[in-house]
Nucleic acid binder design. Structure first.
Lengths: 344, 344
DNA sequence: ATCAAACTGTCAACCGGTTGCCAACTATTG
DNA sequence: CAATAGTTGGCAACCGGTTGACAGTTTGAT
């Protein structure tokens, strides 16, 4: 309607020809619009003969349903929403991809929004989305449990990377990967380990630290926790000094970015990785194998998380109950070059 | 409908309470629904007094418009679509982010789809999307020009990374970055340069090769073109043999992934980068600085492309004409460690 | 041949906003 | 105080599908 100069009353933005409707089909096929509607969406409700006539007519007109017209009375939109904390963060790339792929395989479209790490933005985005999508996936949400439960009471919601009582969740089970990592480090002669933590409010960071502590207990390593300023390459560089000061010969970081920054800084300071210090990251993000040595890391199957979450959500939309407890996907240690035998 | 166990007649999937409508507000405020509609969307059409009453009522009921109901008569959806060739490819991450960010800044929601590098999937996705969004961004489309023009005739379309006559496009202007790269290589004593090409059907790959040829002409370098099997790290590894055989001491690759694979393979074969051979990638993707040495690369401002494309699209939705010719964004050489003086 | 059960297609009432048109109600001015 | 212009709110008709109720048509069994 607003194509430049003329504010013409045409309803389609461009090229006047608005798309054909079921009424057009009905006229062409010589039946009632409602019959067309049934033919196109309720298999078996109309006779094979009329069905054929209608399908041909639809074909001929190149008909496509108007999703809004359909959504209005039914409330179904064939869309799922995904809110991620930070689009810049490679951790989410795989989640996005996983969700998009399984979504579109089942004819659902993905709607994406970012919360920019802010609980308020997140809530706003979630609220806005909730009215336009059939269900919502929250990846590493920053809101408090209560708000999330409130959203979940309204429409199906699945959470990734966090466990919330009463809301279906998909979380990597870090224990397996962490124990593999700690065992491998112990076997390579390490006795002092440092964990470089992520953001204070991160559920996952706490969780990983607990896992590290437990594994170190079991394998008889000393573990210290170091704080990072931010979970980025830069944050990793900054924490290098503390790592050195801690006397640890093995480091597990909250995520790969930290590990990469840390490794760069330690190497710049003349340390040899892994002979003098072993570094194990977390997540196995894109690019983790670009470094020299390539980064050893505990792989979180992020893509699988995204796709499992989407599957869960889609099943819930079909009327299934969400799982009572969190779905756990296994993590595993990927040994590359940055961890190995300690050469004292 | 198919809500699993309980085929209740409730229209909302969950929690019975469907959200308040303008009719509810109208009743509460004691006015006609149409007045409510006007108060909420046409500023100035109703008196300040009624406006206030209605807004209060809306506030009280916690009203939110139903986007579908609004979209039905107006055709406007406050949504823009983005189709990328491959969600896995980091090149697109920045584009997605750029588009999402500027989109949401202007209250538009981003709908994402992937074409999996297939022209057919792409067309299907585009068609499906076109009916649900106000405008569409195509990033590195694989369809032929004709189809894209057909889509563009229907609704506003902006293309990224390709130039199509008659369709608004945003493309990185590779010439600047390429000449910087070639000049820098020439200055460092290189005389033989190889270009590792991307997919045969890629418009961008051809374009970059042309740029390389032109720059090499100017700076008096010999340039050969080598084919890669696929534009990935693995493809880069595979092409290493040809690179060596070509006798070139400087390489520019179609993208960073190829450069990284190539560098890894050459280093594994005992070559020293950049003393014996210089490598310059393309795009400056996430992770390009994770390598040792960090990758020199011609940066394409992908994020800016995404955001420019979104801006263009949004402006077109406001009635502006699309630009007659392609919008070019500058590329620039980022010198890191992988290119430098040739030590013969 | 008769009658009930099973199919099929049609009618009409929604879903929740938007908007052209008109009437009633100010406000301004002569 | 009347006439005119400008506001403001209401009515009703859409947008394009979906769906419950119903009637006409088959089909099958008795």
């Amino acid at each position: 309607m607003n194509s430049g100069a003329a504010p013409s009353p045409a309803k389609r933005g461009r090229g006047e020809k608005s798309s054909p409707t079921i009424y057009d089909i009905a006229r062409l096929a010589g039946v009632n619009p409602s019959t067309v509607s049934r033919a196109l969406s309720k298999p078996g409700r109309v006779s094979a003969k009329t069905q054929k006539i209608i399908e041909d007519a639809a074909e001929q007109l190149n008909y496509q349903v108007n999703p809004f017209a359909r959504a209005l009375p039914t409330g179904r939109t064939q869309t799922i929403g995904l809110i991620v904390a930070d689009i810049t963060n490679p951790t989410f790339f795989d989640i996005i991809r996983g969700a998009e792929t399984t979504g579109s395989a089942r004819d659902y479209t993905l709607v994406l929004a970012e919360s920019a790490e802010s609980p308020e933005t997140e809530l706003t985005a979630a609220r806005r989305m909730l009215s336009t999508v059939d269900g919502l996936i929250l990846a590493s949400p920053r809101m408090d449990d209560e708000r999330i439960r409130a959203l979940a009471a309204d429409k199906p919601v699945v959470v990734i990377n966090r466990e919330i009582e009463g809301v279906p969740c998909v979380v990597p089970d870090v224990n397996k990967g962490i124990s593999q990592a700690v065992r491998s480090l112990a076997a390579n002669g390490h006795q002092q380990l440092a964990y470089v933590a992520g953001p204070a409010q991160s559920w996952m960071s706490r969780r990983r630290w607990e896992g590290v502590q437990a594994a170190c207990d079991w394998y008889k390593l000393a573990a210290v926790r170091l704080e990072s300023s931010k979970p980025t390459v830069d944050g990793g560089r900054q924490v290098a000094r503390d790592v050195l000061a801690s006397g640890a010969t093995a480091v597990i970081t909250y995520n790969d970015l930290l590990a990469i920054g840390l490794m760069q800084e330690l190497q710049a300071a003349g340390m040899h990785v892994p002979d003098q210090i072993s570094i194990v990251g977390f997540d196995d993000i894109f690019g983790a194998d670009f470094t020299t040595p390539a980064l050893s890391t505990v792989r979180s199957p992020l893509g699988e998380c995204g796709s499992r979450a989407a599957t869960l959500l889609l099943d819930m939309l079909l009327g299934q109950e969400g799982p009572a407890e969190a779905v756990r996907v296994d993590t595993e240690l990927v040994v590359r070059g940055s961890s190995g035998r300690l050469i004292a």
